[in-house]
Design a protein around this nucleic acid. Sequence first.
RNA 1: GGCGAGAUAGCUCAGCUGGCUAGAGCACACGGUUCAUACCCGUGGUGUCGAGGGUUCAAGUCCCCCUCUCGCUACCA
Length: 653
Amino acid sequence: MEKQKFYMTTAIAYASGKPHIGNTYEIVLADAIARYRRMQGYDVFFQTGTDEHGQKIEEKAKAAGITPKEYVDNVAAEIKRIWDLMNTSYDKFIRTTDDYHEKQVQKMFKKMYAKGDIYKGAYEGWYCTPDESFWTESQLVDGKCPECGREVVKAKEEAYFFRMSKYADRLIEHINTHPEFIQPESRKNEMMNNFLLPGLQDLCVSRSSFKWGIPVDFDEKHVVYVWLDALTNYITGIGYDADGESTEQFKKDWPADLHLIGKDIIRFHTIYWPIFLMSLDLPLPKQVFGHPWLLQGDGKMSKSRGNVIYADDLVDFFGVDAVRYFVLHEMPFENDGVITWELLVERINSELANTLGNLVNRTISMSNKYFGGVVTRTGETEPVDEDLKSMILEIPGKVNAKMDQLRVADAMTEIFALFKRCNKYIDETMPWVLAKDESKKARLEEVLYNLVEGICIGATLLEPFMPGTTERILVQLCAPKRSFEELGTWGLYPSGNKVTEKPEILFARLDLKEVLDKVEAMHAASEAPAEDKKEEEPGIDIEAKPEITYDDFAKLQFQIGEIIACEAVKKSRKLLCSQVKIGSQVRQIVSGIKSGYSPEEMVGKKVMVVTNLKPATLAGQKSEGMILCAEDAEGNLSLMVPDRDMPAGAEVC
RNA sequence: GGCGAGAUAGCUCAGCUGGCUAGAGCACACGGUUCAUACCCGUGGUGUCGAGGGUUCAAGUCCCCCUCUCGCUACCA
């Protein structure tokens, strides 16, 4: 019988820096699914890779004094190293700088252009540098980036746009008739209500403000912009050809069965990507699953705070499979999960060391102690055996049902229930009592046989999730590997086999305090050099605005304002409403700085204010001026305050 | 502000189309056991099921309203 194909992908990782544990979660989750499908007998093709173009990378490379290609070569190698460290079984690692990919992206761009789906826009646009986003005049919100609210610069450049609206109705129809397409389902409403139903905006698909990208081959000033470049990896990686010369693999594997992505990019995968495919006359992927994120428990992860958890550190501390276990089992299906050192230690101790490790250990120890390691099936059964067997033989079906819904954590819970049942069986049969009675020898042998058999089935089921552990258990039991079909049969462990003499500790119990001390030491070690680096802080380059004359500048009026009262604007997440004393008058100014300042700490501050800006109304509040504030790439804010004390109203010039 | 989701044991959460004394895991306590990594097995919750109304013989489970949390989106002179 022909194997059924299963093509799945992860998102490709942006090659701007080292991935942390949150990024790593995705590849491990995908790997568990891929391995599981393979075990079920699917012909799986599992693709992952890196997204390597864009202005951010161009800038980082420049700062590092190397070419963008050298830069992404380094990062891609690092990402691949971590994916390999996590023991992930991807079949293909695509890079958007691969030549076949670049060639196809150019062809697709041309094809879409010829079809009229891509057109050249000849109007002035606005560019938000930190977001690398391009906006049309109508998308701007009071002249600022609608994504992040930061300043945009006028980019008086021509750009290519994709006519999204042309396919919107077809997409709405598809989403409505394919409830499984967007998972989890709650995301479907968000896409519909926020983007599709209000009317889809055309998407800018080229850039001319930077060079590091795939050139539009019929218009060299432009490079193809990120989404058309990145998303298409899913088809170029398996051999798509825009001229109709696609490979056999492409014909077999497309459409993809599953795109596994983070919930933050659901929009691009469920709106833009399907529409690109429609434009290319290709079928749509069967399912897009937007997984939640793994967050750190003690606040926001950030590199500058030195508290980012990296996969390789975790692996150093706990081993690959313990880390895989944690991220796979502790993640809720829809909500973000939390990772802390404490949780990790607790889970490892209770499930891996106590339940599983100890079970394997005590079973092997008893086999050696009582029978020199030889495991024999004697047929000396008792009713309790039947209970054990039937429970265990039901597990594969239960795991299957969970995996079909991508409920990976729940599937693992089922497997661990099997191991718990085995521990209970030991208490029920009390081998140490049987051992004291020579006439119960055959019974004791049967009990140990059943345990070994049960563990083998559990270990086999565990393989997609913790492949290394499966291997270690089977080696210790000297058991042959089993196929998925064989899991329905009890008694395949070869009677008379001999298990290892000295059981190896699968997962050592950890002492929380020791682990935390080690973490502390690690942070201390990495923080020290970080201090040195601060002296040569790279600084931030932003898009240069056009030169202005002194007369232009002179039109602006800056003054010192004293904040005499401040409160959060109701029903707004980012706005603070301040009463600002400027000279003899008091003005009300609304600013989007709630993320950086509380109303209480604002009061009493003297800040720099633009005082001759035309008043506007924000979230229902009148605002007469603008409080100036610096912002870094991470969105941290700092008010501009006078270096020496100045009276409210003093002019800044 | 718009749309959506949620509020259940100390913690993380299950509880589908309403039906008997509201569940699981972890943590905690006690008991049992000793093959084992001080492990395993068993037992233990009077929880105002966010507040208040309503429908019903019967409501975490349906309706209304309120409060709070979260997601997406908008708001950042």
